[in-house]
Simulated assay, not measured.
Amino acid sequence: MALEIERKFLVKNDAWREAVEQEWQIVQGYLATTGTLTLRVRMKEDDAYLTIKGPPHGITRSEFEYPIPPADAQAMLRELAILPVISKVRYRVHYGDRMWDLDVFSGSNEGLELAEIELKRADEHVSLPPWAGAEVTADPRYSNANLARHPYKDW
């Protein structure tokens, strides 16, 4: 089974920008969200994916991701996704011996910046970079599925 083990933090300053190694434009939408499942379609530049995530158990949950034709993803975003869709730029940022993902949201979630670190184990130690602010891993408001239903600008 594929597992996602992830911690999420607010970003408190722009010091991370000097360590950016890659960046992508991402547009994603949620086709279904329940207490036990989320079904997401994502466009990452010219690639597209369908992702199924199970319920969280602490910072761990099952995750299955499959490539799909970009034209199908565009149609799903247009015709099936909960609105508004999520728009963001994802930056890959190196800190210490780790790669972090920093998401800078636009559209209905403009002003929100989140840093995520994927782990191999739930109890793995993480040295926080100076730009990592408050941890929001357990705060459901910061899940992308929630941001689709309750955008940051409406908080």
Rank of each mutant, 00 (worst) to 15 (best):
L119R: 05
I86D: 01
L80D: 02
L102W: 01
I86W: 02
R141I: 11
E118A: 03
P129V: 14
E135Y: 02
V85H: 03
L102C: 03
L147I: 09
G107E: 10
V93P: 02
A148M: 08
I68R: 00
H125A: 09
S127D: 10
P140A: 12
R98P: 07
K88C: 10
A48M: 12
S106Y: 03
P70D: 05
R92E: 15
P69W: 06
G58C: 14
L119C: 01
I52M: 08
D101S: 05
D47T: 14
E65P: 00
D72P: 09
I117S: 00
L119S: 02
D46I: 10
I52L: 15
A75H: 02
I52T: 10
M43W: 00
A115S: 13
D103C: 04
D97Q: 12
A138G: 08
R141C: 11
R149V: 09
A75Q: 07
G96R: 13
K88D: 04
E113I: 07
Y91S: 08
G58S: 09
V93N: 03
P130H: 15
R98D: 03
Y49Q: 09
K88E: 05
P56T: 14
E113R: 09
D139K: 12
W100F: 14
P69V: 14
G54R: 00
F105L: 13
S62W: 00
M43R: 04
K120Q: 11
P56E: 06
A115V: 13
A138Y: 07
M99Y: 15
D97A: 14
D123I: 04
S127P: 12
L147R: 01
E135A: 08
K44S: 08
P129Y: 13
E118S: 03
G96S: 09
P55Y: 01
G96D: 10
A134S: 11
D72M: 13
